[in-house]
């Protein structure tokens, strides 16, 4: 189960598990940002390819408007998913290991 906490218009906290069953919920939540988006992933334990797809699509949408997607505080396992897929080259990842 993915828990999404909205901090302000462009900042969220994701925690729990971001699997395929949570993709629609996350897509709706991230549908209409008005600037560079920051997602704190400190509490995120798991992300599958469907979760990555939501983030890539959000990135594309933001990039078209001149904004970016910043991901912070990824744990080691989640960080490695981004490393394996080289998506760490796409997103602005800010965490203690970077």
């Amino acid at each position: 189960m993915l828990t999404i906490e909205k901090i302000n218009d462009n900042e969220w906290k994701f925690s729990g598990r971001f699997d395929a069953s949570q993709a629609d919920k996350a897509t709706k939540e991230l549908a209409d940002p008005s600037g560079t988006v920051t997602i704190d992933m400190a509490g995120l334990d798991y992300i599958s390819s469907m979760g990555l797809s939501v983030l890539v699509n959000t990135y594309k949408h933001l990039n078209e408007q001149g904004f970016s997607l910043r991901l912070t505080n990824l744990n080691r396992h989640v960080r490695d998913i981004f490393k394996y897929t080289r998506l760490e080259q796409v997103f602005d990842i800010v965490d203690p290991t970077s």
Binding site: S48, S49, M50, L52, S53, V56, N57, Y59, K60, N63, I81, Y84, T85, R86, L87, Q89, V90
Partner: peptide
């Protein structure tokens, strides 16, 4: 092709790639 994938910022095909990695 991760270079192409990252360049074009696609969002499909990652699952099978991850299985092969893990």
């Amino acid at each position: 092709d991760l270079e192409d994938y990252v360049e074009k910022k696609k969002s499909g095909g990652l699952g099978i790639h991850l299985i092969k990695q893990m």
